[in-house]
């Protein structure tokens, strides 16, 4: 920023960015709180069918209405959030561990291991992530375990690449040289010096990956390759409701909004973390 920008404008800008970051944190914390606490307060069975009250609009007994089998949509959206978000978080944690682990070691030991890992990463990056998730889910079949596999594998290469570049840069630093010079074991140098100093940008990537994961979990559920009925999952609820768009549009509106707000929250949180660790540049 070299042009004349008054300090007031700059302050305003920072405030607004902070406001967006705050919104991101608020969304993520809010949604997690709602899906964790919600089912404890709204104690309606998301699987209980009631064929007398099918496809009803919002009422006092069913604030979001009911689906085609008379199941309470509020309960389904609340429990569905647990399913969608939990699968997303587990998938990203797996991808983060495997990807960052590979990248960390790659950048540290270099040589043939590095070349091999990076070639595999390049090849996996050649597939649009959603497509790779689709293919894995298609081959393995639907279900929770396979959804986790389908969502985590496409996320691995980005973590690997990021952690490798961190690892490469940090191993060149003086303090790593010093740690090696005093004879610390490679694993100690790796875990005590390289890893803690390189982890910052990885958390940014994790937040972005969570947004993508929610999209993929819901997308797989939407096309019937993800979590299977009658279990509630946001994407699966959405596809159930789409046929009855005319009778109860709220049933399409709410799960979709929940997916969108989660993704928005993780994206904003990623931006906020990016500011914190000074990566990704100003936007």
């Amino acid at each position: 920023m070299t042009v004349a920008v008054s300090s007031r404008t700059l302050a305003l800008r920072r405030l607004r960015r902070n406001r967006l970051s705050f919104l991101g944190v608020l969304l993520v914390v809010g949604i997690v709180a709602v899906v964790v606490v919600g089912p404890l307060l709204w104690r309606v069975d998301p699987l209980a069918t009631d064929l007398v009250h099918r496809l009803e609009g919002p009422t006092a007994a069913h604030p979001l209405g009911t689906d085609v089998q008379g199941r309470d949509l509020l309960a389904r959206v609340l429990y569905g959030g647990r399913v969608t978000l939990l699968i997303s978080v587990v998938s990203v944690m797996i991808a983060l561990t495997v990807g960052s682990g590979l990248g960390l070691v790659s950048g540290f030991v270099r040589g043939w291991f590095d070349v091999l890992v990076m070639r595999i990463v390049d090849i996996l990056l050649a597939f649009p992530p959603l497509l790779l998730a689709l293919v894995i889910a298609a081959a393995r079949g639907p279900g929770v375990g396979n959804t986790i596999l389908a969502v985590s594998v496409p996320a691995i290469p980005r973590f690997a690449r990021l952690m490798r570049s961190q690892s490469l840069a940090i191993t060149e630093r003086e303090y790593v040289l010093a740690a090696r010079a005093i004879g610390l074991s490679p694993s100690r140098v790796l875990f005590r010096h390289v890893l803690p100093n390189g982890i910052g940008p990885v958390t940014v990537q994790a937040s972005i990956a969570l947004g993508i994961a929610v999209l993929e979990v819901a997308g797989l559920g939407f096309i019937g390759l993800g979590v299977q009925p009658p279990a509630p999952e946001w994407g699966a609820i959405l596809v159930d409701s789409r046929t009855y768009l005319l009778q109860n549009p709220v049933a399409v509106l709410v799960p979709g909004a929940a997916i969108s707000l989660s993704i928005l929250g993780f994206n904003l949180l990623g931006d906020a973390l990016g500011d914190l660790f000074d990566v990704g540049g100003g936007r």
């Binding site: 999209l215 997308g219 959405l238 399409v252 997916i259 969108s260 993704i263 928005l264 994206n267």
Partner: peptide, 8 residues
């Protein structure tokens, strides 16, 4: 635009 799922 980057947060809304296209299918929704």
């Amino acid at each position: 635009g980057l947060s809304l799922p296209s299918f929704w």
